[in-house]
């Protein structure tokens, strides 16, 4: 078999502005990081701007994919999010109109439990 040239695949990541993360752009085939950066600029930034550009040899990237997380969706995650706390808005509105007494008792005889169960 004929001799093959020694090029490697580099994945390209670019950051559009200071508050944005580096985002995967595409990849290039290059013999060195310098060449990879030059090719990345030529191939992907003829028009768009960036503030920072990374090139990473593909074989240096460690990866897990969604197949490795088949069980992930099987348990609910609402307790980790604001999803379960939507009732708070109504309660705040209620207490704005019906403030608690300094000793914590209800001003108009509504029990705390009843309000919580809304």
């Amino acid at each position: 078999m004929e001799e093959r040239l020694d090029f490697a695949v580099y994945e390209v990541f670019a950051q559009a502005d200071a508050l944005s993360p580096h985002v995967h752009v595409f990849n290039v085939l290059a013999s060195s990081p310098d060449m990879a950066m030059a090719l990345a600029e030529e191939n992907f930034f003829r028009r768009a701007e960036f503030v920072s550009l990374w090139v990473v040899r593909r074989d240096q990237i460690h990866h897990i994919g969604h197949h490795d997380r088949e069980g992930f969706k099987k348990t609910p995650k609402a307790y980790r999010t604001t999803e379960d706390y939507k009732y708070l808005r109504d309660k705040w509105r209620y207490y704005r109109d019906h403030p608690m007494n300094p000793d914590g008792s209800e001003a108009e005889g509504v029990t705390g439990d009843a309000a919580m169960d809304d």
Binding site: R4, L5, V9, F26, N27, V28, L29, L39, E42, N43, R46
Partner: peptide
């Protein structure tokens, strides 16, 4: 013209990754 060559570069990378199991590349 530069864009067209650039498109060729993108696509030949996509093809190369698919040809890897065959031991083939852009050459």
């Amino acid at each position: 013209v530069q864009d067209e060559v650039g498109h060729g570069q993108l696509l030949i990378r996509v093809a190369e990754d698919l040809m890897r199991p065959w031991g083939k590349n852009r050459e």
